[in-house]
């Protein structure tokens, strides 16, 4: 610990500003994602009259067991929406810590670890999804159903192997950041207790 340390005010202020801006972007992202992935999946375009699920199905020319299809679509929509919503929430939490002026905090480390774990989960899911249309299919009987739903629900789930690597890369980068921040926290603690 410095004997007479003075905080670096301009940097501190910049971090707080970036934190506040990041929080706003994440909130907007959460709202947009919920509308784009969840609401539009169930009610294709609520602002153009298709505000009910049966009308959405009509617009696609689908008839039959509407409650049954709704349950299936609802499950898939929740499954597709939740991971990214959770990602936005975690990143928003990290920006919240920035807004408080705290960078090397255990909360941020845990948040980044959470982002890494979700990214790995999404990568695993996408790998299964890709495998369902590859020569190795079908790994799961549910996946072809999800794929057919995807075709008319416009759920943006890319089945390409590239997107698997994208999510894996995000996961690996976040995991590296997590270890880096953990090490930095330990060093900071040691520095704070150096007289």
């Amino acid at each position: 610990m410095e004997t007479k340390s003075t905080p670096n005010k301009p940097i501190d202020q910049r971090i707080r500003t970036i934190g506040s801006i990041g929080q706003g972007i994440c909130t907007a992202g959460m709202i947009w994602w919920f509308y784009d992935m969840f609401i539009q999946s169930l009610f294709y375009n609520p602002f153009q009259g298709t505000y009910s699920f049966s009308k959405t199905m009509e617009s696609y020319g689908i008839s039959g067991d509407i409650p049954g299809i709704f349950n299936m679509v609802f499950t898939v929509a929740v499954f597709m929406t939740m991971p990214v919503m959770l990602l936005f929430w975690l990143v928003r939490k990290a920006f919240g810590e920035f807004a408080k002026g705290s960078i090397l905090s255990p909360v941020i480390a845990r948040t980044i670890l959470g982002v890494a774990l979700i990214s790995f989960s999404v990568a695993a899911f996408k790998l299964l999804y890709w495998a369902s249309e590859s020569p190795f299919r079908p790994l799961s009987p549910l996946l072809p159903t999800m794929k057919s739903l995807n075709s008319f629900l416009h759920i943006q789930t890319s089945g390409s192997l590239l997107s698997v690597f994208e999510w894996l890369l995000i996961g690996v980068v976040c995991l590296s950041l997590y270890w880096g921040i953990r090490q930095a926290i330990a060093l900071k603690e040691e520095n704070d207790l150096t007289v």
Binding site: T3, E189, E190, L193, T194, V195
Partner: peptide, 8 residues
């Protein structure tokens, strides 16, 4: 304290 500087 975890460490002490020579100057201190």
């Amino acid at each position: 304290a975890k460490a002490i500087r020579f100057s201190t």
